[in-house]
Design a protein around this nucleic acid. Structure first.
Lengths: 228, 228
DNA sequence: ATCGTCAAGATTGTCGAAACTTCTATCGTC
DNA sequence: GACGATAGAAGTTTCGACAATCTTGACGAT
């Protein structure tokens, strides 16, 4: 009848599970930039053997979140001001292209998704109630979804995939930014400006608003990071 | 004195070795697009156990050369006209931007590298002497090096990395193209046009020449490929 | 005191087998 | 004959142990 007793096999591999856990741990800073990733520790965290962990690490290396040197293990890819600046410049251009094409191609469903994702995003505080120096998990999901909605109507899978990868890389900096920000920053207003321009089908304005939004993070963080 | 007797450990891991071998096999068509990659076969080819092979495959998945479904193994990512068109459109944008920046920043060393890499490229035939439907390995290396030289002066590691990844994806189509091409195509002339524009510091002309170069492959191949 | 050597411990990389899932071909039933 | 169940084969995924490599720190020579 019920085979509730055992949770035998999930629908995803242990390797994929390890990948998720490690990603999460790196994003939240549980594993600091530059920190060595020791198998013993990871195995304890994920409760699995070496093989799936290695698989996950190989994938993370290809994605640029982790670095490795033969026989000297893996370490979290370091962050730097130089890397952030390069990343943001590239994102401005690429996300700019994506939104430009989305604006050209988007229908009213695309518009609707932007409106609704912006709505739910603004109803939530950015920081956790309990630990204000950390980002609220749900807010982060919604934030990602809003940016995804903006470019969703772009018809290039390749471009979208690159945008997502770069967005992931930027996430790590965003987490730091939040812990530092002191001055007043109205993120909701920034998002609203982007959405407004997109809905008005003004590609140039949308790109400019997006650029401003991305550059804000650089401004806040660069002081805290070494040059390279 | 000499410990030539044993070749015990190379300076790279078995996993990296498997990655190289598989990449090569996929590029040359030894493993056809869409074909399943069975461990038994790969292990025989690479002469190693499962673990490093899995590691290599995980990496290839992240790079988009291989696809996987849980418990149903790995397969070579399929090729399609739609994918090629998207790829080329994206490359035109990204490589165009990279060469624009290279033109703005490059010094005489950058120029020299373009000239020399073009020179050695044009001294070699594109096809193998023995099997004319296959690409000459050395030509391919030099071709890659020429395109690398063009953008080398670009100061964005992120952009360069993306360009390389897309170039790798395009390699697979290039191989097919060569086997098909019947009409007259003067690849050397195309390369010379790009180099000439770059050396003349004419970004617009260089981008146009690059775009023409990339689109040639699409023209030759699209007939042979299904829509998706 | 400084440097190099070496052994012991820690850590990573690889293997081969066991556990599990999917595929395939056969058989029985309608 | 068509369909569904089923047992065996084929293939994938994970594990635990072993081998190779790196790191650390003590020891001795210069």
């Amino acid at each position: 009848m019920f085979d509730s007793a055992k949770p035998p096999n999930s629908d995803q591999s242990r390797g994929a599970e390890a990948w998720q856990i490690l990603r999460e741990a790196i994003f939240t800073g549980r594993f600091q930039p530059g920190a060595p990733l020791r198998f013993h520790e990871i195995q304890a965290l994920c409760a699995m053997s070496v093989s799936p962990v290695r698989e996950a690490l190989a994938r993370l290396v290809a994605e640029g979140l982790v670095e490795t040197e033969h026989n000297r293990g893996y370490r979290v890819a370091p962050l730097s001001r130089r890397d952030l600046e390069d990343l943001v410049r590239t994102r401005i251009k690429l996300e700019g292209w994506a939104i430009e094409r989305a604006i050209a191609l988007g229908d009213e469903l695309w518009e609707a998704r932007i409106i609704s994702s912006l709505h739910v995003l603004t109803r939530l505080p950015r920081r956790r109630a309990s630990e204000p120096q950390l980002m609220d998990e749900e807010w982060e999901r919604r934030h990602k979804d809003f940016h995804e909605a903006l470019r969703a109507a772009c018809d290039s899978p390749t471009l979208l995939q690159i945008c997502r990868a770069l967005s992931d890389r930027a996430d790590r900096y965003r987490h730091i930014s939040l812990a530092i920000e002191t001055g007043p920053r109205d993120v909701d207003a920034e998002h609203e400006a982007i959405a407004k321009a997109a809905l008005a089908r003004d590609a140039t304005a949308a790109q400019r608003a997006l650029a401003t939004h991305f550059e804000k993070t650089v401004q806040y963080i660069s002081l805290r990071l070494g040059a390279d």
